[in-house]
Design a protein around this nucleic acid. Structure first.
Length: 314
RNA sequence: GCCGAGAUAGCUCAGUCGGUAGAGCAGCGGACUGAAAAUCCGCGUGUCCCCAGUUCGAUUCUGGGUCUCGGCA
């Protein structure tokens, strides 16, 4: 017995059936759902993020949904803090912590206990460096990073300005290299006894599910939802409106692209999102894969997961 | 039925003065430590419609065929 808290994780790409499975599982395990979804943290983004309905949330308690308004920041460090606190609380209340979601970074920050520094992102700093990157190119900033934090520069591509700027930000604000954080994480110990399941589907089925889901969202009033957000005064540049789907429909409402273009773009970008999500999860060697389109479907998946849970709690 | 144009990657198309071919989009693979549904990197995946002829060699030239799209009937 290690004394570590057991943690059940259900990961998977968008539209693979995570929510349905989790909704079935949670009552059987007599526990709640801890969402690991970077889009569902925004209040008011309901249809386009496939957020669980009010009814579903009455059936099973969901955590870490509706955390901030669309113009507020919510970072992976916020998520890690909130999720880890919750996991401890649930476990000491006699419940198995159960994380469900598709945001690889969020899941990993929790399960591997990423060592974050003290300082988050700062708009002023970022805007200044963005301007510099526009003027001189991200490669110039990359050179600067090489001088300050060679280890980080080695890992970050010269054109990946997001990461270059963040690395410079850490160095400037905290006075130490971001690569040190990664080192600290590597040396640290995993705080949980993990049981990790990944949902997958044959690619053609996954893509068909995405297609149908986007159509269903539009029928349920996705476009109206975006209109409402804009009419409440949220700017297109605010974090919530940068989310996939919201960004494209906002462009459509602004008259920049047609509705057809917006819908096509949303579908394409969602397929790519699903692909990136899978890339993230495939990296986890301990992931046990489940395919809901395979024989037995959801029932079989439920049994497999319950079996795994029995073992980890024994 | 006649006349014309076309047929090359999943799609739209370029190209080869005869030496088995390349763009965009789509797709595939990967990275990821405070924006992550973000950001970034890598990769052509092909009976060049079919059959015959000419040729050392045909996706390319010639003939025939098939199909598609225009126009005329």
């Amino acid at each position: 017995m290690t004394g570590k808290i057991p943690l059940l994780v259900l990961a998977g790409p968008t539209a693979a059936g995570k929510s349905d499975l989790a909704l079935r599982l949670a009552p059987l395990l007599e526990t709640d759902i801890i969402s690991a979804d970077s889009a569902q943290v925004y209040r008011g983004l309901d249809i386009g993020t496939a957020k669980p309905s009010a009814g579903e949330r009455r059936q099973v308690r969901h955590h870490l949904i509706d955390m901030v308004d669309p113009d507020e920041d919510y970072s992976v460090a916020d998520y890690q803090r909130d999720a880890q606190r919750l996991i401890g609380r649930l476990w000491s209340g006699g419940r198995l912590p159960f994380m469900v979601g598709g945001t690889g970074l969020y899941l990993r920050a929790v399960t591997e206990n990423y060592a974050f520094g003290k300082r988050g992102g700062e708009g002023v700093f970022r805007r200044r460096l963005e301007a510099e990157a526009d003027a001189a190119g991200s490669e110039a900033l990359h050179e600067r990073l090489r001088a300050r934090d060679p280890a980080a520069a080695e890992r970050i591509h010269p054109r990946d300005r997001r990461r270059i700027i963040r690395a410079l930000e850490v160095f400037t604000l905290e006075g130490r290299p971001i690569s040190e954080q990664v080192e600290r994480t590597r040396k640290g110990e995993a705080p949980y006894r993990l049981l990790t399941f990944g949902l997958t589907l044959p690619r053609p089925l996954l893509y068909r599910a995405i297609e149908e889901r986007v159509e269903a969202m539009l029928e349920r009033g996705f476009l109206e939802e975006v209109r409402t957000l804009l009419s409440r005064g949220y700017r297109r540049s605010s974090p919530g409106l940068q989310i996939l789907g919201y960004r494209q429909l906002a462009a459509c409402i602004a008259g920049e692209i047609s509705r057809e273009e917006a819908v096509r773009e949303i579908k394409t970008q969602t397929r790519r999102l699903a692909k990136r999500q899978l890339t993230w999860f495939r990296r986890d060697r301990n992931m046990r894969w489940l395919d809901l389109s395979a024989a037995g479907g959801v029932e079989r998946a439920v049994e497999i997961i319950r079996g795994g849970v029995k073992e980890i709690l024994a």
